[in-house]
């Protein structure tokens, strides 16, 4: 047990949580935007896989990590647009489009990798430091003991992910585009009746969603792992869907639920180093935490409903009395 606390009360633990959370957060925010516009984007995993591959390839071709990241972003946008084309224009069920994209992400990427490089499975021999996303040692902060070790020295994209939480919030609640997105998601008929082009808004939402998951993909192959390999995203796109649902589709809430998933996984890696703990048991930690999280979420939602109910009743009583 003391071993457990030793490893938890280390700045490295918090550092790990933030690092594990970053890719999940990108994809979860992507899901938030799509969901707000009333489209379900379950193709996050596939989008991340494909952008991760192109991030690596483009950065290798141009020998510039920045162009690689932008390339991954553009590929994400294109994939979002492609989803839009199939789901909105051709009226395919969007869940099916998402599934197709995920399959493309797992099988198609291997094909593309082979097509472009002749490599199979992974790109580890392409990697070199100048094509990886650099880390940022924040001046001043990095010199503060403990706190510096927690929050300084992350990949540039990690900071971008957390900044994007507020950018997405701002976009959704403080801009007219955000208002349109929410209106379309809330009630597309009502939105249409006031002259909003539902299809256009949903296209934009899917493309924004693609852009965000594209960044998540770049994070995976250009920083987290220093090369791309088959299956590299390993389900993070699906965890992001859960994080979005648990965060009630709100940017800030989603950030906290992403952090919860990140914490669960960080715990898993630490606990597996403790004497006498079965690896099978350890592997279940993220799932147990998810269930606990959902239970807490349900309880709080229930209490909220009860409180609203009570309020309503009080008001009715008051009205009756008068």
């Amino acid at each position: 047990m003391s071993q457990f606390f030793d490893t938890i009360f280390k700045p490295e633990f918090v550092f790990a949580i933030i690092r594990i959370t970053s890719p999940i957060l990108f994809a979860a925010l992507a899901s938030v935007i799509a969901e707000k516009a009333g489209v379900v984007n379950i193709g996050l995993e596939g989008t991340m896989m494909i952008s991760a591959l192109f991030g690596t390839l483009i950065s290798f071709w141009t020998q510039s990590w920045l162009i690689g990241v932008l390339g991954a972003l553009v590929v994400g946008i294109l994939l979002g647009a492609m989803m839009g084309f199939f789901a909105l224009r051709l009226r395919t069920n969007i869940i099916l489009v998402g599934i197709a994209l995920n399959i493309l992400g797992s099988g198609g990427t291997v094909f593309l990798l082979y097509l472009f490089t002749g490599m199979r499975g992974n790109t580890s021999s392409l990697s070199s430091p100048n094509i990886l996303i650099p880390t940022w040692n924040i001046p001043l902060l990095k010199d503060i003991p403990v706190v510096g070790a927690m929050f300084s020295g992350h990949a540039v994209l990690t900071y971008v992910a957390f900044i994007l939480v507020f950018v997405v919030w701002f976009l959704l609640y403080k801009t007219s585009l955000g208002l349109n997105i929410r209106a379309v998601g809330e009630n597309s008929n009502a939105a249409r009746s006031v002259g909003i082009s539902v299809q256009r808004i949903q296209y934009i939402a899917l493309m924004l969603s693609g852009a965000l998951s594209g960044l998540g993909g770049a994070f995976m192959s250009m920083y987290y792992s220093q090369s791309w390999n088959t299956g590299i995203v390993a389900g993070r796109g699906f965890i992001a869907l859960a994080a979005q649902a648990m965060g009630r589709g709100e940017p800030v809430g989603t950030m906290f639920s992403s952090l919860l998933f990140g914490t669960a996984q960080a715990l898993e890696t630490r606990v597996s180093g403790i004497q006498g703990v079965s690896s099978y048991l350890v592997a279940s930690i993220p799932y147990v935490v998810t269930i606990l999280g959902l239970v807490l979420y349900m309880l709080s939602a229930k209490r909220k409903v009860r409180r609203l109910h009570q309020k309503l009743k009080n008001r009715q009583d008051a009205e009756q009395r008068t």
Binding site: T7, K10, R270, G273
Partner: peptide, 26 residues
């Protein structure tokens, strides 16, 4: 010998966290 399992053959991200924890904690 610190033994840990990734529980996946295709998740270098997680293996990295395991390795980092081994180095930092043990």
């Amino acid at each position: 010998v610190d033994t840990r399992y990734v529980n996946s053959y295709v998740d270098p991200g997680k293996a990295k966290e395991l390795g980092a924890s081994m180095i930092a904690d043990k």
